[in-house]
Design a protein around this nucleic acid. Structure first.
Lengths: 139, 139
DNA sequence: CTAGGTGCAAAATATTTGCACTGGT
DNA sequence: ACCAGTGCAAATATTTTGCACCTAG
């Protein structure tokens, strides 16, 4: 894989601040068109796919779009998704991982990865909410 | 909610055979254009959203598109996703649900639902596979 | 009768591809 | 120099919206 300016730029941005992002958010953090380190949209998508292929990023779908999470060989992370503030809260649960492995073993399924999104209301929004009604967009 | 021909057609198809489907698969099972029970694409999307809102269907994202699962108030179902044959295999695990609830309690998160997709290789494909190499598209 | 529902066409969104050109090695 | 990589424009795929017409209640 060639060490191009575009890939260097993307790696810098992707790993400078950990956290989940989508293609647009990444592009926003990169230099704009006709600015030194500009990376075109197709290249962003192509390169993200390469990073996923290489294991530098994990990819999954949230809310209709593809999101990417840095983490090289890190343990699988799960997420709470607050349907009020739309925030993603990461967590790690060995108990869940174990249960997944257990069920998989029972069924003869070989686990490569798992993706868990728990939707509901985060503690902040629960406290802030008092008599407000709202619809629940499940993920 | 009005009892229209379109909604009746869609309910028939959606609940005649249980299982996960996307908008296109549903449309394929409905009568074609200029056939008696035809339902237009926009109406299919609008009505699917209503069914989700009404709790008749659950919606989530898989492989870049929206998929729908029938089941009125059923217990949350989880899935294995075989990256070889692209098949979805449903399972229910009280252990996982408990663990999720446990972690949520610890964090003050109120759970509305959860969505778990475990990607890997199903038992059929593990047996069939011998010396074939393949890339892994995680979900 | 009349609001909610529908179909059509077109828009919006997200992602991918063909192709000529550029830059890394 | 060679070829992987890139940018541009356009294509694809999916879902949504504006609007005029239709129909269930």
């Amino acid at each position: 894989m060639r060490n191009t300016q575009q890939r260097r730029m993307m790696l810098d941005v992707v790993f400078s601040q950990a956290g989940i992002f989508d293609a647009d958010q990444l592009i926003e953090r990169l230099p704009g068109r006709s600015t030194p380190g500009y990376v075109s949209r197709p290249t962003v998508y192509r390169t993200l796919a390469e990073f996923v292929e290489a294991g530098l990023l994990q990819k999954f779908e949230l809310d209709g779009r593809s999101v990417y999470q840095p983490g090289i060989g890190s343990e699988p992370t799960d997420h709470f998704f607050c349907v009020e503030c739309r925030e993603l809260i990461e967590f790690v649960s060995p108990a869940i991982a174990d249960s997944v492995q257990q069920v998989a073993n029972d069924r003869g399924f070989q686990v490569a990865a798992h993706r868990l999104v728990v939707s509901g209301t985060c503690s902040n929004c629960r406290q802030r909410r008092r008599r407000t009604k709202r619809r629940v967009d499940l993920v």
